[in-house]
Amino acid sequence: MSVLVFTENWDGKFKKSSFELVSYASKIAEMLNTSTVALSIGNVTEDELKNLGKHGADKILSVTDERFNYLENQAYTSVIAQAAAKESASVLVFANNNMGKALAPRVAVKMNAGLGAGVDQLPKSTEPFTIHKKVYSGNAFGNVIIKTDVKVLTLMQNSFMIVENQKDGAVETFAPEVNEAHFKTKVKDVAKQTGQIILTDAEIVVSGGRGMKGAENWGAIEELAEVLGAATACSRPVSDEGWRPHNEHTGQTGKIIAPNLYIAAGISGAIQHIAGVSGTKCLVAINTDKDAPIFEVADYGIVGDALKVLPELVAGIKELKS
């Protein structure tokens, strides 16, 4: 038996969510009295692979076949199922992000496994296997029993603390059987940010709404993001107006994020926006309207003009850090 973790790297470095996943999986492995195996697909150095061992991976399977440079759902599904069979995995863990959502349901069907999507904590029990997840876009939670022998879970990001848990972390090259017929998509173009923090992987997010009054005022958001090492985001009206690109829109129909700290500047807090950030640990709201709904869900609030408050916040944080 084992718990198998599907990890993801970003230009050869594991994403923060992958360390969360390995930490999480090794706790489940402890509950089941079994070992943790991490699967890495892509070009990752042995040193970086070994980092997974620091967070609880007993073994790391590394697939470096170049045919897997781009995500091909059927081909990846086959690799993951082969790894799971080889390691007799009884639990498979993915991140609840773009890649995890693309693969986990396919893998679940292939392995005849029940899927627990978007879990936000360790299983409440392993017999029966009961998971806890967000439902109704964060307005409630559900306890769900997975009845199958093999279970597939996707873990909400930023919902499990990365822990140090040094294990053997033996790296093993894994060469799965590959079916050429599985490669049906051709990638024609890639637009990928470099150097910035990825919104869905970020611990801190600074987000602006209509109260920022125009694209020309976004320097204040970017400056605060820079001093905090944060990603930037925006509300739907802002992306609809074209002040910011659509890929920054957080909310029910945009990106759903769960950072440790979310600073909402000039965002009134429509229910659809809140649905996209309800997993946030600490929410700070800055708004001129003291009755704005954002203050009902915020942990800390300032009634004031974001354009005035943000520069002072930047100054205060610089002082703290110095």
């Binding site: 679940a108 496994a113 029940g114 899927l115 627990g116 009961t130 439902v135 964060g138 307005n139 409630a140 939670f141 559900g142 306890n143 769900v144 029993i145 997975i146 009845k147 199958t148 709201a285 203050f295 009902e296 869900v297 915020a298 942990d299 800390y300 609030g301 300032i302 009634v303 004031g304 003009d305 005035k308 408050v309 002072e312 916040l313 205060g316 002082e319």
Partner: peptide, 25 residues
């Protein structure tokens, strides 16, 4: 393959702590 056994409402959260706009620090 799965059964929803019980729902929970989110814990009521403490009220928002307000900070004066003149004391951003």
């Amino acid at each position: 393959m799965t059964d929803f056994v019980a729902y929970e409402m989110p814990q009521p959260k403490p009220p928002c702590k307000m900070v004066d706009a003149d004391n951003v620090k």
